[in-house]
Design a protein around this nucleic acid. Structure first.
Lengths: 119, 119
DNA sequence: GATATACTTAGGCAACAAGCTAACTATTGG
DNA sequence: CCAATAGTTAGCTTGTTGCCTAAGTATATC
């Protein structure tokens, strides 16, 4: 279940652009053609196509062409690596806080014990 | 509870680099000085410092200097906007699937009804 | 078969990213 | 005070990103 090295980079980088996030938000509502995707943006078609390609490279999106129309759709589960990384990160963080809490608790207990029988 | 425009860009872009993610993973285990952060990387100090600065600009990290030592630490809750965006995205997607499911269900029901009394 | 449609490719440009080295500043320890 | 330590600034190189226009290709449509 390992992902290609650099895959997370591609994913996060793909998400680091407002135009591309907007495209993804649109696609969450259902597949769309390139022209449909382009419509809301004040941007030349080739520029937008570049974004679509970058999304495709990251694996967030697929597209296939029928006749002269290319339809783009979200890839189900493509966000998983991103979520996993965030979850793992949070797990480490929370584990650390737990240990810290344990440590402080033990420290206070020891201090209490110490005051009963001084060294 | 709105975040600055471009904040998500900064966050995702900050996460889109393996060195910076490694730094974050390190910091989840606790604060560290710049030198400590630099140690595992085969990279000149100024380069690494650039990454730290980028993390700071994104709001994922803070640092303060005591004497000649700068200590860097994770900002609690800094990932929240990222998680929120992902959650919102998933919500839209799942809502769409629900509607699609409803639609298909109704369609099949109508077809069944139709076969009982044709028009 | 000409024309409109829907992309696609090619090429160019300005800004930014990620790395480096060299030189500088500000503590701290002897 | 001198030297080592910890970070910082400046300046350069190389590659990537994001945008553009102009021109090309491959389907429909009339």
């Amino acid at each position: 279940m390992n992902l290609a090295p650099g895959q997370l980079d591609l994913l996060f980088q793909a998400l680091g652009d407002p135009t591309r996030r907007a495209i993804l938000e649109r696609l969450a509502r259902g597949p769309a053609t390139v022209s449909e995707l382009a419509a809301p943006f004040d941007m030349a078609l080739p520029s937008l196509l570049g974004h679509v390609r970058r999304l495709e490279d990251s694996g967030l999106v697929t597209s296939d062409k029928e006749g002269r129309v290319r339809t783009v759709r979200l890839v189900p589960g493509a966000f998983t690596p991103v979520r996993s990384w965030l979850d793992a990160q949070r797990a480490i963080w929370e584990d650390r806080l737990d240990r810290l809490d344990d440590y402080v608790t033990r420290l206070m207990k020891d201090r209490a014990d110490g005051s009963r029988s001084a060294d």
